[in-house]
């Protein structure tokens, strides 16, 4: 069984570590989690973002949830806020798209255009 003693050890280890990688610069990843988002499959998407950020040990990036973003037919919707840049809105997001969004956009700064709201809307 997982115990709080283990957590204590994790704490001590964490305090010894110096944050070497600070790549996020306060980037926020926000997933729409109202009824519409959840019904469209937002939960595995949020889960995938948490896992990807964790796996890459990215610091200073927050993954949070919000309510209805307003375009329910395009859910799951994910918004990415990078400091000093315009917000990027991804639509119809699937867990399989997440690693690419993280590596190409969050880490390397180039949005995955073909999954953004502007691209999808102009195509339809």
């Amino acid at each position: 069984m997982k115990s709080l003693a283990e957590l204590e050890a994790i704490r001590e280890k964490a305090l010894k570590q110096v944050n070497i990688r600070k790549q996020g610069d306060g980037t926020r990843i926000v997933v729409g989690m109202a009824t519409c988002g959840i019904a469209a499959g937002a939960r595995p998407v949020l889960s995938a973002f948490l896992e990807e950020v964790n796996k890459r040990e990215l610091k200073d990036i927050s993954v949070t949830q919000t309510g209805c973003i307003g375009v329910c037919r395009l859910e799951p919707i994910v918004e990415v806020y990078k400091e000093g840049e315009e917000r990027v809105t991804y639509v119809n997001v699937k867990p399989s798209m997440v690693p690419k969004i993280v590596s190409q956009h969050i880490v390397n700064g180039t949005p995955v255009v073909e999954n953004t709201i502007g691209y999808v809307e102009s195509r339809d």
């Binding site: 994790i10 704490r11 964490a14 950020v53």
Partner: peptide
């Protein structure tokens, strides 16, 4: 709340903590 008492200033999104 119990976790917070043990963790102090270490946050939940620390990879080891979130795995725990």
């Amino acid at each position: 709340r119990k976790m917070r008492i043990v963790l102090g200033e270490v946050e939940f999104d620390n990879p080891d903590v979130s795995l725990w």
